[in-house]
């Protein structure tokens, strides 16, 4: 099986939320309640236990080349406005924080390279929730277990494309073999630069691009700083820094042992 993933080209996203709906329908996820957030057209808010796709809407008070109809000379709000829309999803990191933190082995990497939570093993300890540098995986309170995007494991087993990519009407969500997607993504960036969209860049495409995660299996083409899309600028899998903590623990343990022995010995020999 090849390593599969998503390339999400945000310049093509029109914010239709078909991916959100397709994901909910196919995976038979419960709704999250119907609330208005006041955040542009985003009434979903964030990814969560029962929300595995989330479309972000950013109203930018500056122009983005290519938006509007340049041929007619028409521009959005006198050229001082542009939309950023992004369909967010689990990144299926090459070094996955959730997977490395999971104490039960409930989280594993599949033959497609995706990260999968086994609902029949997860005991709801909540450690993966704190370990994800993207705030993706979450524990559902009334279910008690952690849930996230499965990269439509059941569909991949049947040679089907994940529901969100299938439903996307503009090819903003592209599914395929990772190497092929990266090549396509680089060509797309070059193409956009030629067309004057110099802001376009790839987020998390490989280890050189995002060393903290060693690359994402679901990477993005963005046109502004990652923070605007609620993506961390320099995410890191917590385990990469854990050596320092284990070393500190060794000092703590040695100190405690010395303290216990020392206090007993000093009391024996002292007054």
């Amino acid at each position: 099986m090849g390593q599969m993933g998503f390339f999400t080209d945000t310049t093509l996203c029109i914010g239709c939320k078909a991916c959100e709906v397709a994901c909910k329908q196919w995976n038979q996820l419960p709704d999250d309640g119907f609330r208005l957030t006041g955040m542009s057209f985003d009434n979903t808010g964030q990814l969560g236990a029962s929300t595995w796709r989330h479309v972000a809407f950013i109203e930018r008070p500056e122009a983005l080349p290519g938006q509007g109809s340049p041929l007619d000379g028409a521009q959005l709000a006198d050229g001082a406005f542009s939309w950023l829309m992004m369909s967010d999803v689990c990144k299926h990191c090459e070094r996955a924080g959730c997977l490395e933190a999971c104490p039960t082995g409930a989280i594993l990497r599949t033959e497609f390279g995706s990260i999968y939570v086994q609902p029949d093993v997860c005991n709801g300890c909540g450690y993966c929730v704190t370990a994800c540098p993207f705030g993706v995986i979450d524990r559902r309170t009334d279910d008690g277990r952690a849930w996230k995007c499965t990269l439509c494991y059941d569909r991949l087993k049947e040679d089907l494309v994940p529901a969100c990519a299938k439903a996307c009407p503009t090819a903003s969500i592209q599914f395929g073999e990772i190497g092929e997607l990266k090549e396509r993504a680089r060509q797309r960036v070059d193409h956009l630069h030629e067309r004057g969209v110099g802001q376009a860049y790839l987020y998390g495409a490989d280890a050189a691009n995002q060393p903290g995660t060693e690359g994402l299996h679901a990477f993005f083409l963005l046109c502004d700083v990652p923070e605007k899309y609620n993506l961390p600028p320099d995410p890191v899998v917590p385990t990469k820094k854990l050596g320092e903590s284990w070393r500190a623990m060794a000092w703590g343990v040695a100190g405690l042992a010395a303290l216990a022995v020392g206090s007993v010995l000093s009391a024996r020999s002292g007054p």
């Binding site: 704190t130 854990l242 903590s245 100190g255």
Partner: peptide, 27 residues
């Protein structure tokens, strides 16, 4: 002391920032 490592092994900014001290503090 391992509980200090446990908190440090998270993406939470406060705990990551404290990762070199927390295990010793906990001990």
């Amino acid at each position: 002391a391992y509980t200090g490592v446990l908190l440090a092994g998270s993406a939470v900014p406060l705990w990551q920032g404290a990762r070199r001290v927390m295990p010793i503090l906990f001990a």
